[in-house]
Design a protein around this nucleic acid. Structure first.
Lengths: 241, 241
DNA sequence: ACCTGAACACCGTTCAAGT
DNA sequence: ACCTGAACACCGTTCAAGT
């Protein structure tokens, strides 16, 4: 699908009157909401703000959208559609799955704290389903029991969502912090853990360093790999499945 | 610590005048917020509603609490204090850790959707730290590398929180649904998956049954066991750590 | 030092009235 | 059929004024 090319406009040409923009359909509303999400985060997306973006009042949206939840569901599915659906290759299923979940994570992280929304429901839009469908497809290569695959997909979706949400928290809580301020924040956090009383928190103290090491993606890949390696060990320990 | 015993009151005794309840301290506010959380869920906890519970106005709370976030942090730490801290036994570290995380999950689930709040930040209250401290303590029995333990604790806290939140969603979204209505809802969901077009979703179709099988705790235990078994496999595959 | 009412700048959603 | 202004019942937080 490609948009029709538009003739270039030179500066002398008079602007088209903005009048016939009164079509205000569902897809336009979703688009406006997505723009606001990217600009201001999930809390910035209010019905009033979306309406403002479309030069109308909040009440007008309700002719095309049943409620805010419905709207965000549609926004989420648009985002899910950005996740590339890879071919299933002949290689190691674990590596294929890791790359796929990392790309899903990257898409989520690139849209602020949208993960907070998808944590709250089972996404059932077509694009979201296509993502899950492909996950199962790749995991089927493993020949693990059906129930293990089903539950694993569920747990992994929860994990990728929670991880993406966690990643988005800092920019949400400190909207216009400089990198220096963020470094300062983490230094303080590290100091806080390092200064914990030894008698009550003997283990935590030593962990402060490794606990805050690495970036979000590295930590995500760690959890992912641990879980996927665990699947085989789990199936081996539960031959009844 | 035990509260001082109070003399029993027989029915004829006149009630103490309610007058000297004007102390309105921090702990009282936290207690009121916790009561409202349990009764109405996290969205029910508004500064105005908490104030009402204490027969005052919202503005009055700000003499004792810096803001709503601060208040909820204190509420969370009270809840974290409910998690029993077990002795570290001589047995299998994996089983000990599973029981511990299950008890943490149960406490979270028993306070509506409070998990949504803890997903959004690294809890640093004393009770929350004590929980993490004990997790590391148990995991140290495994003799896994320090970094693996640190990252594993982090991932597991994310997982237990996300899982508890997911569990709370249904009662939040359908506040006064009867068990029959819930069964109906899940039947419809199952039907939705079962009716997916075979050409586009060949894998998802067959998964609808196992995907919705089991209760929250069973599914949680599954993910937990998979992850913990994966830790050993991961460490074995990464001898450089 | 603590408490208060009123105000500010917001919410999602409904509804009668317009075209 | 679609759009609108005004209203309803809420938010978190601030602030000047009271005791």
């Amino acid at each position: 699908v490609t948009t029709a090319p538009r003739a270039p406009r030179w500066s002398g040409e008079p602007r088209r009157t903005a009048a016939p923009r009164r079509q205000l359909g569902f897809e336009q509303i979703v688009g406006a909401a997505l723009r606001i999400l990217d600009a201001d985060g999930l809390d910035g997306v209010s019905m009033r703000r979306v309406a403002q973006e479309l030069d109308t009042g909040a009440a007008s949206l309700y002719a095309h959208v049943t409620n805010k939840d419905d709207l965000l569901e549609a926004v989420f599915d648009r985002i899910a559609a950005e996740v590339p659906i890879p071919e299933i290759g002949p290689g190691n299923w674990r590596d294929q799955l890791i790359e796929y979940y990392v790309s899903l994570r990257n898409v989520l992280v690139s849209h602020r704290d949208i993960a907070r929304f998808s944590l709250a429901r089972i996404p059932t839009g077509p694009a979201a389903l296509a993502v899950t469908e492909r996950c199962i497809g790749i995991m089927n290569l493993s020949k693990l029991p059906t129930k293990v695959i089903a539950w694993a997909c569920d747990a992994l979706f929860l994990y990728v969502t929670a991880n993406a949400y966690e990643e988005s928290i800092y920019e949400s809580r400190f909207p216009n912090a400089t990198p220096e301020q963020m470094a300062e924040y983490f230094k303080n956090l590290l100091g806080f853990f390092a200064d914990l009383p030894t008698d009550r928190f003997p283990n935590l103290r030593g962990m402060s360093g490794p606990m805050l090491e690495g970036d979000g993606e590295q930590r995500f890949r760690f959890g992912l790999e641990v879980f996927l390696r665990g699947l085989e060990a789990y199936a081996a320990a539960h031959p009844e499945l």
